[in-house]
Design a protein around this nucleic acid. Sequence first.
DNA 1: CCGACTTTGTAGAACGTTCTCCACGATGGG
DNA 2: CCCATCGTGGAGAACGTTCTACAAAGTCGG
Lengths: 344, 344
Amino acid sequence: MEPTKRPKRVTITDVAARAGVSTAAVSKVLRNAYGVSPAMQERVRAAMAELDYRPHAAARGMRGRTYTIGVLLDSLRNTFFADILDGVQQQLRGSDYTVLIGAAGFGAAEQARTVQSMVDRQMDGLILIAPGTSRAEVLATAETLPTVVIGHHDTAAVHDSVVDADDQGAALVVDHLAALGHRRIALLAAPGLKGSQWKLTPEAVLAKGYTAAMKRHGLAPQALAAAYSEEGGYEAGKRLLGAADRPTAIMAGADVAALGVYRAAAELGLDIPGDLSLVGYNDTAIAALAPVQLTSVDQAGTTMGATAARMLLERVEGRRTRAMQTAMTPRLVVRSSTAAPRTG
Amino acid sequence: MEPTKRPKRVTITDVAARAGVSTAAVSKVLRNAYGVSPAMQERVRAAMAELDYRPHAAARGMRGRTYTIGVLLDSLRNTFFADILDGVQQQLRGSDYTVLIGAAGFGAAEQARTVQSMVDRQMDGLILIAPGTSRAEVLATAETLPTVVIGHHDTAAVHDSVVDADDQGAALVVDHLAALGHRRIALLAAPGLKGSQWKLTPEAVLAKGYTAAMKRHGLAPQALAAAYSEEGGYEAGKRLLGAADRPTAIMAGADVAALGVYRAAAELGLDIPGDLSLVGYNDTAIAALAPVQLTSVDQAGTTMGATAARMLLERVEGRRTRAMQTAMTPRLVVRSSTAAPRTG
DNA sequence: CCGACTTTGTAGAACGTTCTCCACGATGGG
DNA sequence: CCCATCGTGGAGAACGTTCTACAAAGTCGG
């Protein structure tokens, strides 16, 4: 049935024979474990080079490490994840670890399935970017292997966390818009995950910060749920901007949603930033594009990714056992999608 | 050293004991192989459900399949890949296969390393999206496991291919621009991969189609190399638009590069489409965004991905042994970045 | 020069599957 | 009835590593 006549792999046994040592010795060299003389080291390494030996990851997975890090994300379309990934890769460059990405979509079930399959493949550690699976499932996973959660502010003794101070980010935006003279500032944030038990999702923290900042300015908060996609932003934008008392400024929890609002505004003949100021979040590459020029909040995605990878390695290699949290400080990037409202 | 006290996994042996059969029998049920009575099927399935058994992928990899498909791509930033991935996932939904993505960056060495690590992990099949590794390396990989190459038009007996008819795509663009009255139409395409032995990269085919179409219209072709990134497009755009005899229309081989040209034009005070018509390629989601509205060429990425996945599965499951090529027909999507040149 | 300890290397049992035989009983043609 | 055939199930050897013992040889203090 299987048509491929695979040429036999070079195994640790071949290397051992070539170097005239035992397989155990080769294994030690491979893992640079204790108990090998420099002389033997060299002989074995030479043999490996000559035979072009490559360790068989699946076989390794049966006993020890697979030297694989799994990253879970929902969709490749959110380019913020590319920033995070860059950081992860950068941190892992030069190490023996390979990063494999699972793009699981937005469904909780699909995400759980993907995480499970990473566990089944004996990955050494996981980075979960704003996972949509239930908190209980994540905790169970983290119990079995080192895990870093990016995004959710809920902490746990069993996994590490890397977050952005989203409440500060929201405050930066509200302050900026209020300073420009806006009074009716609306927020578009992702709907909560039903029954997922996460209390402090990025969007929840963002909303909290937004509400607090609005109150501080003596303004009435107006929040609306919107999926973090172009379509989600469009629909929410249509609703907000079609109403009688429409806001003069809208802040979205993701750049891509902000661009959906842009489309809604364009359809209604509203000029940006003349009739409507628009702010995104994440400062993805799209926000900086020449025709876009969207004011946004920089979350330092690359740094987040690098930090997550560093923390994960500490755990994988057993250099740390206590859980740890890291928070990034956001930064406002003002571009030409925000201005003073027309009716000062 | 390793602090985690992992709760022991449920293995095939546990299931066998529970069902009162041999491990061999359980294995057969698992792979729904020949030689099991419906009665035993059911008993075993019940036992698996009761124990919440999950097959250990690493162990499977030692003998048979891992039920894992690897996808190689260079960067998550190119959202065209998200389209392809959607197609792949969609096709594989419901099957037992998991998709894992390797984002290897643009370096040939890094890409080769990533492909190797996929092979080492005993993946069942690979989808390589416009690989930057040498043709020889890809052929060697394809010799060991089923492989589908997306993008490059070079065919081989050893791997399948899915391509877009890029020459037709180029012709569509040139025809469109020529019909609008443009005479000086420049092409920005990725530089060739040095020493990679690929003769028919997407950009090469695109360039060929462009040149042929220009000649057909009696126009002088003008092609310039540009990396498929915002920065690459910007630099090439600066060069082209700063010259005395600047083109009135520019076609880029990727949307993201077109947006770099956009920035260059904006800096030079050129209006789009008034002073310059701009066309991208791939029709990524970015091109359709309200503030962008870039004319582009739709390559049906989702269909490409689905096709690639389907072809790969045929190979993995041994239903086909002969190599196969599939070509998609491109479609022009006209938006507001193209118009007649000012000086008719 | 003796025991204790360290260093270096090896033997061989796991790990959780798959898969190739092989055994057994039932069937059926001659 | 006997012998081939078929359908169902099991024993047990791989697969390529890691890792726990342990052996052998060397070192050192008394």
